[in-house]
Design a binder for these strands. Structure first.
Lengths: 204, 204
DNA sequence: CTTCGAATGGACTAGAAGGTCCATTTCTAG
DNA sequence: CTAGAAATGGACCTTCTAGTCCATTCGAAG
């Protein structure tokens, strides 16, 4: 199938505007709470444009949103996430994560975590897309743990894969509790707890 | 307002059947993925019955489902959760939690966790209901940590509230990752990680 | 300048979903 | 036994929503 339709600069800009605006709406109100008419209104586009850029309709748009949010989440941590090789770097990453979720006035969940829990049970394709982002994220954390071991800052008991999962789960679970409780405290407690656990493997 | 309508035994049974069946459907397909017609079909009831027992419509039904799932989740752990006063008890609780999510063939999220992430951002009333269940759950865990300290099994560095949040977040985050990945492994890693952290505060 | 495909506007459709209404049956209390 | 309330059945209405279609405008290349 002809996947790459020719897009002019204007067209690409419109497509990007749709995805990014829709991503924000979905983050705030969920996939089910966001209709194509909502997207159309917020992006000042017409119905035909939505289907022009996303021929498979809402499903394809949501898939693009997943990709957008996946990139956003990783990009937001990118500098710090790639350089986890000292305790100071872990502390910086921790602060970056907390700060990232503080910036918005209303407390909300993780862009891809919320998407995942709403969509994973229903749509296998999107579930796989989301699983891939989680895997990337987890691998970056595991690489950080691995670097700490290589440098002799962590003992051999610190399994990279296990700690990566523990840290990622702490963020996701912490954000879920934070979203429900209306305060960032749970996220802070959960993430700091997981990091404290990591620190118990520190080599003095 | 006349909140307590008189329900006959038959009526109460029908109402319970609706709530419990609908709770299962919502768990499998989400709130947005479950229509009143789906519920009607699965419970062999009529539209008028749904609105007879839940005058405020879907919103009221979902609220009843939240209560149902909240009870279910706590009940599933109840014996072990109330008796967290030894390391063996923690291990038993851990196994109970894992076993509880193993029983179903398809891997799914936490009944109230999934509900929360779908509904918390949109409906303040339901969000508060869910927050209350999380709080109860967290308090039971904190009480367990407290008992361990009283018995001299944990040192004073083990903050009950912080560990309760860390454990709960590990379960919620672990389940989210498990649901997405299609295996229980993330839940096991996250929960075991949090428990390992707790054990670093053990008094020998 | 013309031409053709991309970009856009917007009316329209089919169906799903929540919710209303009323008739009928069943149960319970006196 | 009977009156009134509860329980039930199901048609019907309204609104929302994904998706279709065609006409029009815009823009780049020859």
């Amino acid at each position: 199938m002809e996947r790459t339709r020719r897009l002019t600069a204007k067209g690409a800009a419109t497509r990007a505007r749709i995805v990014e605006t829709a991503a924000d709406q979905v983050l705030a109100r969920g996939v089910g709470g966001t209709s194509l008419d909502d997207v159309r209104a917020a992006t000042r586009t017409s119905k035909s444009q939505l289907f022009h850029y996303f021929p498979d309709g809402k499903h394809e748009l949501v898939r693009a949103i997943v990709a957008c949010q996946g990139e956003r989440v990783l990009d937001a941590q990118r500098p710090a996430l790639d350089a986890l090789d000292s305790w100071a770097a872990w502390a910086a990453w921790r602060d970056l994560v907390i700060a990232h979720y503080t910036r918005v006035d209303g407390v909300l969940g993780c862009p891809i975590g919320s998407l995942s829990s709403e969509v994973a049970a229903v749509d296998p394709v999107l579930r796989d897309d989301l699983a891939a982002y989680f895997r990337t994220w987890s691998e970056l954390l595991a690489a950080g743990v691995g670097r700490m071991r290589e440098r002799g800052l962590l003992d051999d008991g610190a399994d990279p894969e296990a700690f990566a999962t523990e840290l990622l789960a702490a963020i996701q679970g912490g954000l879920l509790l934070s979203q429900t409780a209306g305060t960032l405290r749970p996220l802070e407690l959960a993430l700091d707890g997981a990091l404290a656990h990591l620190r118990t493997h520190a080599v003095m």
